[in-house]
Design a protein around this nucleic acid. Sequence first.
DNA 1: TCGTTGCGATAAGATCCTCTTATGAAAAAC
DNA 2: GTTTTTCATAAGAGGATCTTATCGCAACGA
Lengths: 314, 314
Amino acid sequence: MKNLTFKQLRYFEALARHGHFRRAAEACGISQPALSMQIKEMEEEVGMELFERGARQVRLTGFGEEFAPRIREILRSVDELGDIARASRDRLVGRLRIGVIPTVAPYLLPSLLGNLGRLHKGLDVHVRETQTPRLIQELEEGRLDTAIVALPVSEAALTEITLFTENFVLVRPGADAGKPVPEPEAVREMRLLLLEEGHCFREQALSFCNMDMRTPPRDVLDASSLSTLVQMVDAGIGVTLIPEMAVAVETRSASVSVARFKDPEPSRTIGMVWRRTSPLASQLLQISEVVRRSIGALRDQHDGQRARDNVPGQ
Amino acid sequence: MKNLTFKQLRYFEALARHGHFRRAAEACGISQPALSMQIKEMEEEVGMELFERGARQVRLTGFGEEFAPRIREILRSVDELGDIARASRDRLVGRLRIGVIPTVAPYLLPSLLGNLGRLHKGLDVHVRETQTPRLIQELEEGRLDTAIVALPVSEAALTEITLFTENFVLVRPGADAGKPVPEPEAVREMRLLLLEEGHCFREQALSFCNMDMRTPPRDVLDASSLSTLVQMVDAGIGVTLIPEMAVAVETRSASVSVARFKDPEPSRTIGMVWRRTSPLASQLLQISEVVRRSIGALRDQHDGQRARDNVPGQ
DNA sequence: TCGTTGCGATAAGATCCTCTTATGAAAAAC
DNA sequence: GTTTTTCATAAGAGGATCTTATCGCAACGA
């Protein structure tokens, strides 16, 4: 049964339908002898006669009739493969496994998932939220299709594209609202609250204050989310830095003040990365556009809120 | 999608399983470039990349993963075709449509169907009981596989084999039991009860009495079954002829007498016919053996009963 | 950083398969 | 009895598929 071919199945089906070699051959677009040979070969392959050649008509044998519905079913399945392929040709479809770092996920995802669902119906999005090193590892193992992280990643096996750059802002207790913005070095002397180890944002914040990773600030509090940090500031425990993106969400229900730094403002660049070999490259570029659009929407929203709250703009 | 081949599907499956071209090729018994080419061709056919070629590993794309289970299902179905063929190779299997004339069916079928069911489990027997011309027509149209009729049929398109020959016996009212057996011509003068037009047995009986079909006997009664004929005789309405085969069943509950004719006894030959082109020929020969065995069992039963009832033997 | 190694892609030629046209044989139709 | 219809067979052309040899690329090790 190893040498059965699709052609033979199609020819079988045509012959069963027409009951006539010449007409069936015509329907298949081949000559009558070609069909005779293929049917014969198929019968040899199967080891049973499939058709009864009468003087005036060709009929399925009882055995052939057992084959016919199964063969039709197989041909249908194969045609369906074609349908699926055709349907997915230019459309982004199937599973998309996307990783996002925790300091981006809660702000970006609601908007992004909404847009993806609207723009790419039939796309099955899986989200993984964890820290950069694990995302990169899973990406390289093929367990993720892409990741949204802070650049640069600098992995030879990965392609990275920039999505946007955002500044960090200082979050202080509401009472500090009017005070001058401290110099980076001055922040070192304040009670600076930071995320726990492993978050790239922690390193970025430390780096801005010119702090070495081996000489941590006086009193660190290892929070697991920006939300916790802001709540801590609100409780008067200290100050913290958060990315602009998080301002709208995190300061909404807290009486804290937000202050921009003087130039050069601290910032981070968020980008998308994927395996250089990924065949999804072109689709991922499409996705990156959707991400930018989602960010844009967030920014507008943020700006609107900033105006209402009288938060210093840039 | 018209040029997909089974080979490609098998190669796809192997590559998906091994995640490695060389090993997959080895598993398929071909060289690595051959596999590369077929996969590439398949991808072109589909219009999508199915595998992601990484530096160190080969993985299914998300799209490929949608294909994989379907392809496995198709391969499974094809293998099943092989299984079915192998299982049916030497065994008589599937549907067997058998036609039987009404003057044989009620006596032969109980035993025959029992034997067929016992000897060929999995054989799906369909029985059609009607008169010879219709059986022959349905046979030639391919709506029956074989028919059991009185020979000869003399159709060029049909093969016929003899199953057995049986005599006709005279059935008279029980009161006539001791009377001498009449000459054939004498029967003509008796009130001879016959089957309705169309039954071959009617013609055979008439022929025995040297009656032309255009000069029917004085008082015909067109019965639709031998059973009816015997009941009529039992009621004293006349006499009839029935084949030996029917004696045991039909005279069991009637007080009629059965008499053999003097040589040459009237008789008929029952045989099996099928299309000369039927691929079932060899299986039908097997079937014919089962029929003979069934007839033999009937005869023995009949002989036993004849001995008990003191019916004249031959 | 530079060979080395492993892997898949590509190239060129041999082989096998499948198709076509031409023809044969058998049965049916006229 | 001749013609027609139909499927099978034969022989050769063309195409598909395989093999061996080789390339290019990336990862790995010294």
